[in-house]
Structures are given as C-alpha cells and as structure tokens.
Design a protein around this nucleic acid. Structure first.
Lengths: 232, 232
DNA sequence: CGAGGATTTGATGTTTGTCAATGATAGTGG
DNA sequence: CCACTATCATTGACAAACATCAAATCCTCG
C-alpha cells in the first residue's frame, strides 16, 4: 500500500500542507491508506474516537441521529477534507461517517496526531482553520434550514454542490432522494417532486447519478435571489 | 475601570483559565472592560475583525442574515463565552453580535491575542476547545431545525435554556417572541401560539421576561424525547 | 429476466405561515 | 401622575407549504 505522505496527491490540501517537507519526512508515514466501497460506515457517533481521517478521493457524509430517530446530514466531505478531529479533544466521535461513493482515505491515529502536534506547532493553525471551516459550513446549513423553504433549500444545495465539484454543467450527485432530504430537512417525496418539476421545466436533467444543470439562472432565482453579483 | 485579569470573576471559564497565574500576570491586562446596555450591536457581520470578546455577564445573540433578508440566530452566549475568535484567522466577523440584556464584556484586541498565542502555546488547546464547542452547539441547532417540528423545537429550547441558566424553575428569557422564532426557524405567531397554549395547560407561566417551568416532564414529552447533552 | 429497492405520482391531512385586528406593556413628555 | 405612543404579544380566519399514506413505475443488479 502506497502511503507515502510526501507524494500524497492531496498533501497540499491536507493538514500536512502547512508543514515543511522535512517535517513530513519525519512523520515516517504514520498514516494508513484505506480503500473502502460505497455505503460503508467509517466510524460511528459516540464511538471511542481513536483516529482522524483525511479523504483522498470520494464523498463522505457526516450524520447525526436525532432523538426521534430521524437523521440529519451535517456535512458532505470531498477530496482534502478531514474528519474525526474531535479525537484530539478526548471526545467520542460527534458524527457517523458514511461513504457515499467508493472512497480512499488516510487513517491517522490519535497518537501520531498528538505527537505531530507537539513536535510541530505550525500544525495548530491548520487545525484551527479546519475547525473554523467546519463551523462555517454548519452555520450555513443552519441558516438554510431556519430561513428558507423547501425549493429554495434544494436549489441552493444544487448550486452549492455544483461549485463544490468543479462547476461543470454535469455533476455527480451521490445522494439518494432520501439523503438529500436528510440534508435539507425534507421528505423523500418533497425532494422528488421538485426534481421532477425542474426536469419538466428543463432546468436540469439526470442520468445514472449525474445531474446536468441546464439553467443555472433559473435555479439561482429559485434559491432565493442571490442577485448580489448583478445588483450591488 | 477594573480590568485586572487575575481577579476576573470569569477567569476560570475564560480562555485564560488554561494559563498559569504567572502568564496571566504577564498579560499586563491587555483587555478592555466594557459595560453595554441591552439592544446594542457589539460588532457586525462582515466587518473587519480586530478583536475578540469575552462575556462576563449578560446574554448576547450571534446572528447571520440570509440573502432573503431573514435573520437566523446561530448561538446564544452567556457568562464565560467567547466571541469574535474568527479575527485570529484574518477573517471578517462571521456574525452580528447583539446584546439581549445589559452586558459586561472584555475586549481583547487581535494584536494582544496573537502575542498571547505565540508566547503561550497552551492557549492553542483552549482555542480548539472553544471552536469545538461552538461547532457542537450549531450542529445541535441544525439537527433541531432539520428534524423536528415547531412545538418540539420550542419545548427543547426552553429545557435547554433552563439548564443553561442554572436549572431553576424560574429562568430569565431575554428573547422576544420574534427572536425566539429567529432562533428556531419559526414565525412570531407560531411561537406565541405555543406559549399561550402551554400557559393555558399550566405547563409554564411568565411574568416580566421570566419564565416559570411548572411541568418539565410535559415539556420533555413535547420536545420529542431526550434533552441530555444539550449543554456543551 | 426477475426481484427488490428507489423514485415518482396522486390524494389527502396536518402544520405552519400570512394577513389583519385587537389587547397588553413600557417608555415619554406634559 | 396620567395620557400617549410605540412596540410587542395574542388571537382568529385563511392560505400555502409540506408531510403522510398509498400505489404505480422505474432501475439496477444478480
């Protein structure tokens, strides 16, 4: 298994991007490379947190289960994202991490992470940045959930995900209708109805898990008027 | 103005709680003590972030405005909480901070904070902890917003706020109906209706901004189950 | 090809938002 | 101290949005 941190394709985007080459060399490749099929649980909410993970390829959802049994997707992770950092605080995992596609991840044990941190204070800033980014994302989700209606949330999400995946007209959407609902606080049926409606209107089409955006401006309208670029 | 960090009543709960006395002494009291009436804006979303603040007394709301103009309260801060830490990352303020009661806050300029951080690596862990706690809180909010209905959210919030303010039968609730709605993703009317209903049923009563919980178990039922872990 | 799961669609009910009016409360100035 | 005013809270009638329940259809994969 190739787990050479120096040649890692996501090194720049990863936590180690902040470290000098020499420091990375001294890591002695503590990370373990994992390849995992879609639909697997990487770790589970409330389980003992003994490692963090860096996503090298694929998509992962972080979810939490409410007391009424309903699930909420809190974040979607893509290449370069880090998860499970809460292990550093001696916490249990705060979410369940589930693969939505086949995935390649690096498992970095807590012990290695701690050693790295003490040896290399520069890492602290990178960690803060990660935490801040996660907070930022969840805050955006909360604003969506608290202030917008179904169609606006869905349209916003499609545009968001489109940007996130490179901004091409066609984008892979590895979420089922149910999961999209679990992210946006909606039922399967509601999600399905808007998809169907927008397909009929020609705003988008879909084939084998790939969504084609034909009319971004229509979606931008539906998303609740982010006219910022045009007006101000 | 008394701004002696050593004798600060919230020192243990503050960022400096982690620092040894000697280090606090060397701080040379860089913080500025402020007393502010209710309804004032401490800092505004997107403004240049030049300082963080520690709340010594009172209640503050952190809000963000959606593109459609609606406001979302993202966090409620009480004694010991820190806000504006995003200044450390060179970001603009991520929220608008508004006082809900008269408050006492300590303003810690970014320059002092940075110096403190380099001089005292122990602070880094405290910072991470703060960020993690904020993330935890917003995630709980997102789960509430995404998975529960109006009455459940409101009941959960009342129990949460009760614990947060000491768990006594009577608690000050410095939020208007509108603001409660802005926190829970509801309209004024919906909030008001449930309050009225629960008063009629004898679950609670209210007088001059103080809520008396008469039947916690009824609220716990209404909240849709568990309330543990709401405090972080 | 067939089975099982996911998606779509329709019919219906509940929840919540919207609009409008009224009642309560607190601060202000005479 | 008392009206006066502005703001907040309550209530009702109604409409819109969304959930729920129940089929039917589509897809995927063995």
């Amino acid at each position: 298994m190739d787990n050479d941190c120096l040649t890692c394709p996501v090194r720049d985007e990863s936590l180690f991007g902040a470290l000098p080459e020499e420091a990375v060399r001294r890591l002695n490749n503590p990370a373990e490379n994992l390849v995992i099929p879609a639909g697997e649980v990487l770790y589970r909410e409330n389980a003992e947190a003994s490692a963090s993970y860096t996503l090298k390829d694929g998509v992962i959802k972080l979810t939490r289960t409410a007391m009424n049994g309903r699930e909420q997707i809190l974040r979607l992770l893509t290449r370069g994202d880090v998860m499970g950092l809460e292990c550093m605080l001696g916490q249990r995992y705060n979410h369940t991490a589930t693969t939505l596609t086949p995935v390649q991840v690096c498992r970095l044990p807590l012990t290695a992470l701690k050693r790295l941190q003490t040896d290399n204070p520069a890492l602290n800033h990178a960690l803060l940045t990660r935490w801040a980014a996660a907070l930022q994302q969840v805050e955006m989700l909360a604003v969506e959930l608290g202030t917008k209606k179904a169609s606006e949330r869905l349209a916003t999400f499609l545009l968001f995900w489109n940007e996130r995946t490179g901004g091409h007209d066609d984008m892979p959407l590895p979420l089922s209708r149910t999961e999209t609902g679990e992210l946006l606080g909606l039922t399967v049926e509601t999600v399905s109805r808007f998809f169907a409606d927008w397909k009929r209107r020609g705003h988008l089409s879909e084939k084998a898990g790939v969504v084609y955006l034909h009319d971004r401006s229509a979606l931008r309208e539906l998303s609740g008027g982010d006219t910022s670029g045009l007006l101000s």
